[in-house]
């Protein structure tokens, strides 16, 4: 891999807290190595700002390995930036070139209020899980793991859905701020396993009700979520969720 350095202009959203109005600030940053990660570029910028006696930019991050789902930047109009199937923390600077201007904003959705600069409050996702995103078993009262054989195809599909990292990019990408991809990933993860069968109906109804309560918009099948999801969660999960929901609704009507 050829390495190179670049000078960049950054336009970053600054907002003191949830009450105040925010605005863009412009920063210049020099000698950025193409080997850096996008967040390392932010580290360097923040070091520069601290040295100049200015406020650093607050952003969420933790694992920097694309798995915790904490990082959440809206980069040049796309959640997590230009690379397909990649979180902000795994995006590397070789995606950019010398002289580029990069615009960075927080997730924008009514259900995800901004806390500071690029950080938002995603606790709505936890409450959606609380509404039914689990299998109700207590600790210790279980049977042998191999007593429940699971057909490999379903196990694989379930795993693919369970790979969702709860980052919220799907919501940020959607013009309606719909949380359907996130929700459907959880419902699919559990519905595809025999262990999840028993609570299947109640789960779908309760979780959908919570999503509505949190103020997420409705799904109009634009597919924007699937296009930006860093874990490539498939939109077919939404179709599965709709079937689950419909079936549960019919059963409940009786």
């Amino acid at each position: 891999m050829e390495h190179y350095n670049m000078n960049l202009t950054l336009k970053v959203w600054k907002q003191k807290n949830s009450q105040s109005a925010g605005s863009f600030e412009t920063y210049q940053i020099k000698e950025v190595s193409s080997e850096m990660s996008f967040l390392e570029m932010f580290d360097v910028l923040n070091e520069q700002l601290i040295h100049e006696g200015k406020e650093p930019i607050a952003f969420d991050h933790d694992c920097r390995e694309g798995i915790c789902g904490t990082c959440s930047m809206y980069i040049n109009g796309r959640p997590h930036g230009p690379w397909h199937g990649t979180t902000t923390c795994q995006l590397h600077m070789r995606a950019f070139k010398d002289g580029d201007t990069i615009v960075v904003e927080p997730w924008r959705a009514k259900a995800f209020p901004v806390i500071k600069d690029l950080m938002v409050d995603r606790s709505a996702f936890d409450r959606i899980i609380q509404a039914g995103g689990y299998i109700s078993v207590n600790t210790g009262v279980t049977i042998d793991g191999n007593a429940i054989p699971i057909n490999r195809e379903n196990a694989d599909k379930s795993f693919a859905a369970a790979a969702c990292i709860g980052c919220g990019a799907c919501v940020a990408a959607c013009k309606n701020s719909s949380a359907m991809l996130f929700l459907s990933a959880k419902v699919s993860h559990l519905a595809l396993l025999p262990q999840g069968e028993i609570e299947r109906k109640r789960r779908a109804l309760d979780m959908v009700a919570q999503v509505d309560k949190e103020g997420f918009g409705s799904c109009t099948n634009t597919g924007a979520c699937e296009a930006v999801c860093p874990k490539e969660i498939e939109i077919t999960n939404i179709a599965r969720l709709n079937r689950e929901y419909l079936a549960a609704g019919l059963a409940a009507d009786k």
């Binding site: 689990y134 191999n146 262990q195």
Partner: peptide, 18 residues
């Protein structure tokens, strides 16, 4: 056993076992 009961999707063989 606990994790399987919770729905942790561990890798499986074609025969369906862990």
């Amino acid at each position: 056993d606990q994790c399987v009961a919770q729905g942790v999707p561990f890798a499986r063989e074609y025969g369906g076992l862990l």
